[in-house]
């Protein structure tokens, strides 16, 4: 057993996992404030990346300006989605809202295809591709940057959910009717959660766009992001981070063992297995809230 190689796999797996977490935090934000799993988070991430590209490459703005500006635009888009689409469905069965988010995802994918076409474009963040050396271990710089962003957002949102606005959002997720009864604006709260998730989508879009190029395939990150969010417990931001690390390591190390046996492609299998097993064995995930039942 080559311990150095194994730890390299584990460390890079953990870093990749944190990038999944970066994506999953957006899912958790919306779930935490409205109890809706947002299937359009992949689409939002892709749009976020395209908006950054449009501002930087097409309009010629520098990246340090383009990214915050894209965040502002996406913040508005998140609010817009609530206003135009979700508000009508408030209080309806979750499955209808779920279908709506799925439709939204397809719509966003189609829109970017119509505007920017389907050719993969590069983000050109300017992060060096020279790997970092930690002893004998290779580490990708862009993964390290992305992991840092994920942890930064994690800390920011942990604090946010203890603020008064954050508590109101958690209250909304608990009980729409009771929230209305004490004057909490459920509509505005859900809108805010979508707006914040859209900002997270910009962060995830930039990092993932740098790693795999900007095209419609970015929206497929949903599968891994959803697996991470479910494993962590859909409403736990800490869960998203821990589960991201776990999934990243399991995927990276596991596929290294399995790939020679099955001839490649075992990554997807591992992710799928984790998702299915979580739902079967521990449906509320590692840190998710239980439904409280008093005896």
């Amino acid at each position: 057993m080559d311990w150095i190689f194994l730890s390299e796999l584990a460390i890079n797996g953990a870093l990749t996992g944190l990038l999944y977490s970066l994506f999953a935090i957006g899912l958790v934000l919306i779930y935490k404030a409205s109890s809706v799993p947002n299937l359009a988070q992949g689409g939002l991430t892709m749009v976020g990346a395209y908006v950054v590209l449009a501002l930087s490459h097409d309009a010629g703005l520098p990246l340090w300006l383009a990214i915050p500006l894209a965040a502002v635009i996406m913040f508005g888009l998140g609010f817009g989605i609530e206003r135009v689409a979700l508000r009508r469905l408030a209080g309806r069965p979750v499955v209808m809202i779920l279908m709506l988010t799925l439709g939204l995802d397809i719509f966003l994918r189609g829109t970017t295809l119509a505007i920017w076409g389907g050719t993969s474009r590069s983000m050109e963040l300017g992060v060096s591709y020279e790997p970092l050396f930690m002893g004998d271990i290779f580490i990708s710089r862009i993964h390290l940057v992305g992991a840092g962003v994920a942890i930064g957002l994690f800390v920011a949102f942990m604090l946010f959910f203890r603020s008064r606005t954050g508590i109101k959002l958690r209250a909304i997720a608990d009980d729409y009717m009771a929230s209305w009864s004490v004057g909490i604006s459920v509509e505005r709260g859900v809108g805010l959660s979508w707006a914040l998730a859209s900002v997270v989508a910009v962060a995830a879009g930039v990092i993932w766009g740098e790693i795999q190029g900007v095209d419609q395939a970015l929206s497929l990150l949903l599968l891994k992001g959803l697996t991470v969010a479910v494993l962590g417990g859909l409403d736990s931001i800490l869960g998203a981070v821990v589960a991201g690390i776990i999934l990243g390591i399991v995927e990276n190390v596991g596929s290294d063992f399995l790939d020679p046996l099955v001839g490649g492609g075992s990554r997807e299998l591992i992710v799928a297995a984790v998702l299915i097993l979580t739902v079967m064995i521990r449906p509320h995930g590692l840190f998710g809230r239980h439904d409280i039942e008093r005896v």
Binding site: I167, R170, A171, D175, A178
Partner: peptide
């Protein structure tokens, strides 16, 4: 219909 996953203190904060 209290906010079950919030503490009583947070329930009061939420309604402020």
């Amino acid at each position: 219909r209290v906010f079950e996953h919030l503490t009583p203190d947070e329930n009061l904060t939420a309604a402020a």
